[in-house]
Amino acid sequence: MTRNFSAWPIYALLGILSAPLAIMYLFLVIDTFTNAPPGSLIPNEFTFHHWRFLWDPTVTGDVWGPTLTTFLFATSMVVIVLAISSTAGYAISRLNLPFRRFFLSGIMVMHAFPSVTLIIGVFLVLQYAGLYNTLIGVILVKASLMLPFGVWIMKGFYDQVPWEIEMAGVQDGASRFTVWRRLILPQVTPGLLSLGIFAFIDGWSEFMLPRILAPSANFQVLSTYLNVVSDPNSTTYNFNLFKSVGLYYTLPILVLFVVFQNRLMNIFGGGTKG
């Protein structure tokens, strides 16, 4: 990139604008490791006391159970969303389906639909199917709400793969399935990767659906766990503890994002190569 003007005014402006956010995050991290005297922001004591929930289940209840459940939840999301989006996206992009236009517009509408408005219907369906208050039920609902997005994104990636490659594969004697698996799928891996990460993050951070669709279940995910910790009426209420649990909950997402941020940006370009 060439520089036609000096960049520092822009950095300064952006720095000032994002300072509140940065300071907030900074204090989030500092507060989990320190204690400050009442009425002051400046900490005067370093401590691991607020992280004791990791090894002491008496503080807020067991944290590893919810962690495992959340991980299971997010991973199931990845598996379901990837499996269905990679095949459905291909079908919509390439196959001469009956009602293809209907599917396409259906996906668009579903994509734009606020999921909250569906919650009563979803509740009834789950109740009827006997999946209310179960982890599987929540996973299925969350995954299906994400599918329109996933299918649409994957369709975009498949659209970028030239037709000729597919025709060449068929001419080389491969079945349509082999062509898809060995020739087309490897070319949409950037899409699969970023969609997978999105699905994971989305599953990891989901709060509303477990809360509403499994309120009295015998499992907790980290978001609902955090909700319990943050209840000001509870006997364990402690602001720094709440922050520590929150930070613990956010960490995997931060790590994922830092590691894969370039890949994630790529999803909005529809897979165009930079």
């Binding site: 000729e164 025709m167 594969g169 020739l183």
Partner: peptide
């Protein structure tokens, strides 16, 4: 055997 205009290499 077919050779396509844009070669269609994998």
């Amino acid at each position: 055997g077919v050779v396509f205009q844009n070669y269609a290499l994998y």
